[in-house]
Design a protein around this nucleic acid. Sequence first.
DNA 1: GTCTATATGCTGATAGAC
DNA 2: GTCTATCAGCATATAGAC
Lengths: 196, 196
Amino acid sequence: MARRGSYAKGVAKREEILGVALEVIAQDGYRAASVKEIADAVGLSQAGLLHYFSSKEELFVEILRKRDELDQDSLDGSPAELREGFLRVIRHNVSTPGLVELFSRQAAEAADAEHPAHAFFLLRNAALRESLTSALRRVGNDSDGAIAGVDPDTIARMIQAVADGVQLQWLLDPEVDMTGVVDALLGLLIEKSGHE
Amino acid sequence: MARRGSYAKGVAKREEILGVALEVIAQDGYRAASVKEIADAVGLSQAGLLHYFSSKEELFVEILRKRDELDQDSLDGSPAELREGFLRVIRHNVSTPGLVELFSRQAAEAADAEHPAHAFFLLRNAALRESLTSALRRVGNDSDGAIAGVDPDTIARMIQAVADGVQLQWLLDPEVDMTGVVDALLGLLIEKSGHE
DNA sequence: GTCTATATGCTGATAGAC
DNA sequence: GTCTATCAGCATATAGAC
């Protein structure tokens, strides 16, 4: 129990760090996404923080993972709820530009198979596609979830691509209506699946 | 003439550098996208290369601009040709992953309004949307280029988003069929505009 | 115009005391 | 577990010779 106790404290501290990191990056923007800034916000020195994460890159991955975890509630439930939940997540992202920038940068840097975030993004993307295709299969007219002859996996990639791509446009120009663009696509897809 | 001569030589050298940079990054990947690697490929020292570009960031912007310039031929012409040209550009990108990674990274980093690539991406994106909306207006049934009630600007953003977003997926996993996903969206949009 | 050499500056990572 | 101190390292940027 003593061993588990100290282990649990380490886990709790990690969680605390991730929570604070999420807040400070959301509030202060991507500039706050340095080890030192996060350490300051938590009330630790840089070295103190790196006691819990083996590297900056690992820290960033865990931040993104925690963020997904907090968003997960919105992505559970029925197909109709999935659409609304998906849009809710995007709407929420508007209030956290720093996290969106962190995500977008890491997504690009993760191209390298050796990058610490590479496996994370592969898994994350696959899980998201799975949620989407499963919803498509349950709601579509075609039993396999295809829409107008397009297979569900391609549809899922399309939805994810639009969401990720419009983020880049929005980071460049906050006037861009991220939710509107994604919702327009979802609307077109649903109409299409309903009418065929 | 003497002045214009030396000026012209400077321009010519810049162009030469950009051409070589495009080649080396396309061939050797994003790792070749450092000032030193490019300088080596051109046959200059690092300092010699930076004589022509005030900073690394400016160099990168010019590389991306040059790339667009070379792709421009594919994006001229009629609406039908625009679709084919758009897909041709994406197909070509498959052979230049280093450039796609450079583009994606810069697109994310350009979020900061102070970043040298910020203005470039704003202009580039606007020009691309203009090409797309103009094609939509010429080809659509609705005189204003809307599709199923979605305004042409949103459609244009959607198309651009899917192209940028699927690149991230493809960088992560080269098995992903970038062209297929984008073409599927274009197909859905065209059907939709044709049937309504 | 191009080079060599160096400054600069950050920031992530590590060693070792407490 | 946390800190202070320090290293390491690189890649950009600049100065100055040729």
